[in-house]
Nucleic acid binder design. Structure first.
Lengths: 332, 332
DNA sequence: CTGTTAGCGCGTTCAA
DNA sequence: TTGAACGCGCTAACAG
């Protein structure tokens, strides 16, 4: 049984003032006499009144809501980004409205929904944004920020870590440690993160007179990464080092090397990951990896979003944040 | 620069019909002539019109929004629950509005915000709900569902797994495998999940003439669980088995046993966890654990929520879903 | 089936 | 400082 919520008019009546006086009591900047203010607040408390922010949004044209589009919450890295973004925005009075999109076919329906719900901004965490919708958002003046996805479109803020440099470091490091047959386990094929890491990695190998020994796709998933590892070791001679496009796959690679192929890490095979997720530091793995500045990336994105919402200034900046190599025991 | 969105009135004008005709075109159940419908849709497409769901909500008193309150997204188990809940609700046209509450002090501000935003329901994932707010929600007829938190209050749906039985199984299993000095690493002290698992565990030990060898709190956190493990092994003789209140801690326990204490699992020490998270099946751990029916728990909660929203029937049911023991290699 | 009318609850003018 | 009046964009009655 839904009871009808208390309205400002009911409060006004009880307090013996006008409805607009009640409204002013709940607007920070409005001017109101202290004693009418008290009368109103007393009445509000008695009735259990809360301003209806839906009605407020209709007038102010601001829902104080940011739509966040994600494709995978089972990846702890993005879960943590979501956590971080939610807390940061909450401090500014904004909340996240969550949209999950596994495949691309839904995505246009999702974007339509976001528009209807009047989100003040859109945050995309490693999710794809069709350029037709990017266009629509820019035209409507809805701020958009992408984290870890690059899109060839003007007017949307984009933040990513320096994937190329990270990949380059991985290649250089493996060569420096004396590995010779270095292979790559890729992430999702179309993703900019995986491709940029790959290109940096290949550039490092080329710069040092090496070439990539073999490559398989792990699709950023555990089982696919395991299959990729098996595939890599069918060729002779097999690789003696593997660069995986993220830590989640790197851990799967290590497990497969040890449990299925009976190989030692780092003696028989060196492994480098990407992200520096918590699991990378666990003693069972001690994964050499490249750290992404998770919190800074999120902060940067939310800042751009908020400033664009509040000032209307569109920067459309493409920010690259530096990565930090973390050397542990998975390379000799 | 925010452009003013297109309104139904503008569409009506262009299509040469009334504003309410436009409205009907976007209401599934309204009756409208096919040819006026086409005229309207053409005009809408030309102008890029989308119905404003804020305005719609104001009238229909339904925001098609569920507030979800979480305390920790860094725990993959709850991240996955969130993922699951979001997708399920999305299929019914609802979306999740995310509220993060680390400590309890914010919680009253958060609940106030939820009420103002007119959420159609509230889903709490292992987050605390003060009973004064539970009361307020019930009085206002706002459906509430809790997952993995028990609260002494009528009228809110609660779903949890059978923690007691799971704990009981853990105790029995360790005894059956010949362990004799069995210790417990607890989760968050006030949490019902940890307490119920603990009680089941203690009951099993008592039923078989054993008692708990030692107990430390791991606070459901990795570092705390590592400290707890060290503390357990200061006493002589040390435990020869550990039941940890969740997998996340159990993995930390195993890492600490091996890397710091030089002990073997399961030969020197047996370990049992709780949850059956993906990491439990990794070859480095092969953790014997108790599986919670994650998806069913979420499904049950969202179903209750939706049926209460749509029919107004308050069940306030307390559901216990069965757990499934998973035997792997961390016990002999 | 269609247009007219009346609100939903609140912020925001404008006189007083 | 306050209250009356208006309107945000839309749905839901009602009469035609």
């Amino acid at each position: 049984m839904k009871k009808r919520p208390v309205t400002s008019r009911q409060v006004a009546e009880l307090a013996g003032v006008s409805q607009s006086a009640v409204s002013r009591c709940f607007s920070p900047k409005a001017s109101i006499a202290p004693k009418t203010r008290e009368k109103v607040l007393a009445a509000a408390r008695e009735l259990g009144y809360r301003p209806n922010s839906i009605a407020r949004s209709l007038i102010t044209r601001s829902s104080r809501t940011i739509a966040v589009v994600m494709s995978q919450l089972d990846n702890p890295f993005y879960a943590q980004m979501l956590d971080c973004a939610a807390r940061q925005l909450q401090q500014h009075g904004y909340h996240l409205l969550l949209f999950m999109s596994r495949d691309d076919e839904q995505s246009s329906a999702i974007m339509a929904d976001i528009l209807q719900r009047q989100a003040d901004g859109i945050l995309m965490l490693a999710a794809r944004l069709s350029s037709s919708f990017a266009q629509e958002c820019v035209e409507r003046g809805i701020p958009v920020a992408l984290i870890n996805r690059t899109v060839t479109f003007e007017g949307v803020s984009q933040v990513a870590s320096d994937n190329h440099r990270g990949g380059y470091w991985a290649g250089e490091w493996l060569i420096a440690r004396g590995y010779e047959r270095i292979a790559f386990v890729a992430g999702v094929a179309q993703s900019s993160t995986s491709n940029e890491r790959r290109e940096g990695f290949l550039a490092a190998l080329a710069d040092h007179g090496h070439h990539c020994w073999a490559e398989e796709s792990g699709d950023y998933q555990r089982t696919a990464a395991q299959a990729a590892t098996r595939a890599l070791f069918t060729r002779t001679p097999p690789p003696d080092a593997i660069f995986a496009a993220n830590d989640h796959m790197a851990v799967a690679v290590i497990d497969t090397l040890r449990a299925e192929l009976g190989l030692r890490v780092p003696e028989d095979v060196g492994v480098v990951g990407f992200d520096n997720m918590p699991v990378a530091s666990w003693p069972s793995y001690r994964l050499t990896t490249i750290q992404q500045p998770l919190e800074e990336m999120v902060t940067h994105a939310t800042q751009r979003l908020l400033e664009q919402i509040e000032t209307g200034i569109v920067t459309g900046e493409r920010k690259r944040l530096p990565v930090v190599p973390i050397v542990r025991g998975s390379t000799r």
